[in-house]
Design a protein around this nucleic acid. Structure first.
Lengths: 201, 201
DNA sequence: CAGGATCCGCCGCGATACTG
DNA sequence: CAGTATCGCGGCGGATCCTG
């Protein structure tokens, strides 16, 4: 890839993550390590040759690294890769403002993208650990003043569970629908802290 | 340009500002409106055909607009364009961490890029209005808790002036050199507020 | 079947020349 | 000074093939 050759932070960043799909791959990995095929599956339009090339580039740039877990090969962000989160949230926040009319035709939806946008809305004064169940998909959400960690995986030791159909959770995350149709189990005060931490009514 | 077709803020943002050179043009305009030739001059490697195409795209996306001032045509950011600043600073901050060894061979330097990185370091508890003179170039720096505005232009009504050679200011901005070699005139307390607002020793 | 590699075609982009 | 026109290359999209 052609470099900008400028002694400037933005230019150096774009030298590494300015290529097509690169930041979207980082966004995907922000919700936990994933397999090659999972990344491909959640990024339709990204072809296998380019994904392989990008993963190699990003590994050389020390943004991610390959790990082996339970016999599976997984791609996981390094500390340096996770440090891209503020930039990704800032860019994402700017982009959300351009999405007034709802999804365009042929726009794809993924709950992971809505989950990520919650990180931006997090005010950070409460803490807790809840599980969000949307249809078959499960997200583990830990929030505290100094740490915010969302992952797509089965929760262990979550103090509460928020459950709804795929459509209900999707409407809440993307469309600003009310929280109320969702079913809540477990520690209700944890759910209340969750709602207050995210500015929910 | 090919769109990602994802109902996600990051993807929508990259649809608009993900193309090569686009964010660097925004970065340049963050220090004030500029003429076509000025943008070209400060972005070596960007060819004139691509610059014209990018400016047209960005005008359609309402990131910038053409204005006429003193008979000159200028390109200026819109409010929406200026809202990209947090994302640019976040990406820039990430990139600065990859610049440990000083400039690489063939890296170009521009004071404007260092000025911009100061926005990131600004803590925002003081206010003032100073003029920075580096050789022939003059920057107008206004800082207050709720507003931070740096522009490359002649200052009017600045309460103090900080002056040095191009090399001295460059060393201070880029290399973390000490502030001391620079010559200061005018209201010394404004300079002190300036230094404290930027965490200078 | 997961995890790639290989080949082809197009268009975004770089370099240069040209115009009002 | 502010762009437009033309050409060529390489990054990227699409499809197929390979390998454990």
């Amino acid at each position: 890839m052609k470099r900008y050759q400028q002694y400037c932070g933005l230019a150096k960043a774009l030298d590494v993550v300015g290529g097509r799909w690169t930041l979207l791959i980082v966004r995907d990995l922000l919700l936990g390590p994933r397999r090659y095929g999972e990344i491909r599956g959640s990024l339709p339009g990204l072809t296998t040759n380019l994904l392989a090339a990008r993963l190699k580039e990003m590994e050389e740039a020390e943004i991610l690294h390959k790990i082996t877990l339970h016999g599976m090969q997984l791609y996981a962000l390094t500390a340096r890769g996770r440090e891209l989160e503020p930039a990704i949230l800032a860019l994402g926040g700017w982009g959300w403002k351009r999405m007034h009319g709802g999804p365009e035709e042929d726009d794809r939806l993924d709950l992971r993208w809505g989950i990520l946008s919650m990180k931006r809305r997090y005010s950070g004064i409460e803490s807790g650990h809840v599980c969000l169940v949307a249809g078959e998909r499960r997200f583990d959400l830990r929030f505290s003043p100094d740490l915010l960690d969302f992952q797509e995986r089965q929760s262990i030791d979550a103090s509460a569970q928020i459950q709804g159909t795929l459509e209900q959770v999707r409407a809440w995350l993307f469309m600003g629908a009310t929280f109320e149709p969702l079913e809540v189990q477990g520690d209700l005060s944890a759910v209340a802290r969750f709602r207050s931490g995210f500015g929910l009514p």
